[in-house]
């Protein structure tokens, strides 16, 4: 267990190093400078700016000094929002995104597992067929399509819910729903398939033969095994939620990392982009490590290698 975690942590560090290097070099080597997109800056001023932001000298020197700063935990100052350091921007936006993401994450799993089990219980009957058609429709309607439709219907047509901002409870409902519904559809499909497979196994027949009632069999015996694929889907799910939340934050005007990232890419604000990409990758890789460990705890047959 310990050597496994150790090896994974080393791999994580290597990956983070690659990610940071690639992002920096790509953004820096691309033509155009991060200080102004359309206006030409006098060379002397540009030189001053570059030395202030640690972007003077050869590309190798710039890269090494940036790498040193990142290792020290200093993600530097934004070249666009010049009074802000990337650390400050992250400190403000990351909690918002994390709150939205984790609520959506839990809701996705909850919806998905309940609906998937329900469909498996009624396999082949109309409940199952219609639920699975809805789930397929859910997969086909991503968050950024659902969001304007929900705004149009619940926000503007019915006037029930507020359509932008972040803070009040009613401002949470639409973004969280838009973010989690499409992915609950895929979780539901996953749960249904895996539950149906588990239900054909011998230990379920034994449970039935003992006279246990069907709901107990499902919850106590079958779901426990059937949820393993869901656990391994948690990593990709988090990655999807993360990219999905970029648009959802943009549409609902939520002050999270997403809109900052998009704007910074367009503004060539390379330190903000670098910082956010670093955080994104770090979150996802830690979650994946956690999921892998959890997996072995749930299923003793799997050995870490």
């Amino acid at each position: 267990m310990i050597p496994f975690i150790f090896r994974r942590l080393i791999l994580m560090l290597l990956t983070l190093f690659t990610v940071v290097s690639l992002t920096f070099l790509l953004m820096r080597l691309a033509p155009g400078n991060p200080f102004s997109a359309d206006r030409k800056i006098p060379p002397s001023i540009l030189q001053e700016l570059e030395s202030k932001y640690g972007l003077s000298g050869t590309i190798g020197e710039q890269y090494l000094s940036y790498l040193k700063d990142v290792i020290r935990g200093d993600l530097r100052i934004s070249t666009k929002y010049r009074d802000w350091s990337v650390n400050e921007i992250l400190a403000q936006t990351l909690p918002v995104s994390m709150a939205l993401g984790s609520v959506a994450f839990c809701l996705t799993l909850l919806f998905g597992i309940i609906l998937g089990s329900f469909a498996a219980l009624y396999q082949g009957q109309w409940q199952d067929r219609s639920l699975m058609l809805v789930a397929l429709l859910g997969i086909s309607i991503p968050s950024y399509i659902l969001a304007p439709l929900f705004i149009l219907f619940f926000g503007l047509h019915l006037g029930w819910l507020s359509v932008a901002g972040f803070g009040n409870a009613d401002q949470w409902i639409l973004p969280v729903l838009c973010l989690s519904l499409p992915f609950s559809a895929s979780v539901a499909r996953l749960v249904r398939t895996s539950l149906l497979e588990v239900l054909t196994q011998d230990f379920i027949r034994t449970a039935r033969a003992k006279g246990l009632d069907e709901s107990k069999i499902i919850i106590r015996h079958a779901l426990r095994v059937a949820l393993l694929p869901v656990v391994s889907y948690a990593g990709p799910l988090a990655a999807n939620l993360l990219t999905g939340s970029m648009v959802v934050e943009q549409i609902f005007k939520i002050p999270g990392m997403g809109p900052f990232f998009i704007n910074s890419v367009l503004n060539r604000d390379l330190f903000v982009v670098g910082g956010i990409v670093l955080v994104f990758s770090l979150i996802l890789m830690s979650l994946n490590l956690f999921v892998d460990l959890l997996y072995t705890l749930l299923d003793r047959r799997i050995k870490l290698s």
Binding site: L26, P31, R268, V277, M285, N288
Partner: peptide
């Protein structure tokens, strides 16, 4: 496995914005 665990679309976004001009040239 590694690529599965990374925010891939984020990379595509960076790639597109960085390579647009060089590709045009």
């Amino acid at each position: 496995d590694l690529l599965y665990s990374l925010p891939r679309l984020v990379f595509v976004i960076v790639l597109i914005s960085a390579l647009e001009k060089p590709t045009a040239h």
